[in-house]
């Protein structure tokens, strides 16, 4: 395998990992599978298009504003939609996220049409390839994605492991009733999980759009990152990282050695294979198989 191929796998794995972190966060805390995650990521990218248009002279401000909007987006989705479904059947909540996804896809076409936007061009940024090793080159934006994925995962790990609110999020996922009895406001914890989930998804969407633009089909990346989260086991961040690597490696290998048209199919083939052998994923908890 050539070094360039490995670099491509790492970049793709970083994208999948960054997106699937959001699936894991929401699932781990509320056992809800957010099937609108890809659409929310796409909206995050479109928000960057909007803020870039408003503040084309000040890219930092535009990026910051878009990132904060990504966080607020999750809080709003929880407050106006998902909040009313806590305590109801998980299936109902999952169906609502499917409906939300369809709604967001329709709305985004109404607002932004199917045209492709390049926020990087609005800033006047170029996206030159860099030689990280002799004969290995990736784009600057891809490099940023890899770096950001590492930062996000490190931050999430430290947050969940060592801060009181991180421990509370883990506790609420295990036993919501006891969490409430220990003074934890479940709605606050769930809203936080949704906010962090759409925040990381928006970061992924923003960087992807800086790399290769955004159009109405970006949501499929969310769909393809879903197998990465499932392969690793939906409740494990470490599993999502490994799952992303496996799915990305399989996809790049299929593109390189078999047929580029397979790229959209391979993640799901990997998923079927893993679920047949280990239905709870590679690193998931065995008892948490009440997934929908």
């Amino acid at each position: 395998m050539s070094p360039q191929l490995i670099a491509n796998i790492v970049v793709l794995a970083a994208i999948y990992a960054l997106v699937s972190a959001g699936y894991v966060l929401v699932y781990r805390v509320s056992h809800v599978l957010n099937l609108a995650h890809g659409e929310l990521m796409m909206i995050g990218a479109y928000i960057l298009v909007a803020t870039a248009g408003l503040f084309s002279g000040n890219p930092i401000l535009a990026l910051l504003l878009a990132a904060v909007s990504g966080l607020v987006m999750g809080l709003v989705v929880y407050a106006v939609l998902m909040r009313w479904l806590t305590g109801e059947a998980v299936l109902a909540a999952v169906l609502v996220t499917i409906a939300l996804g369809i709604l967001l896809r329709g709305l985004s076409i109404l607002i932004w049409t199917t045209q492709q936007f390049y926020p990087a061009a609005i800033f006047g940024w170029r996206n030159p390839p860099v030689h990280i090793l002799p004969g290995v080159q990736i784009s600057v934006a891809s490099l940023a994605i890899v770096a950001l994925t590492i930062i996000v995962y490190a931050a999430l790990f430290l947050f969940l492991q060592f801060t009181a609110w991180g421990v509370r999020m883990r506790a609420a996922g295990q036993n919501p009733l006891l969490a409430e009895q220990r003074g934890i406001r479940l709605h606050a914890v769930y809203a936080l999980a949704w906010g962090l989930s759409t925040f990381t998804a928006s970061l992924a969407g923003m960087l992807l759009s800086l790399d290769s633009g955004v159009e109405s089909t970006m949501a499929t990346i969310g769909l393809k990152a879903f197998p990465a989260a499932l392969v690793g086991g939906l409740d494990s961040l470490f599993g999502a990282l490994v799952g992303a690597l496996i799915v990305a490696a399989a996809e790049i290998a299929a593109i390189q050695f078999v047929n580029p048209l397979l790229s959209d199919v391979v993640p799901f083939l990997v998923l079927l294979l893993v679920l047949a052998v280990r239905p709870w994923g590679l690193f998931g908890s065995r008892e948490q198989l009440d997934r929908v």
Partner: peptide
């Protein structure tokens, strides 16, 4: 329940009384 805990009414439940996947120390910080 969280509002009542904030008032000072705290329950030691019969079943599922600790978080099994948290450490003893984390069960207190939570």
């Amino acid at each position: 329940p969280h509002a009542n805990t904030a008032r000072g009414i705290v329950l030691v439940p019969e079943r599922d009384k600790v978080f099994p996947n948290l450490t003893v120390a984390e069960n207190l910080t939570v």
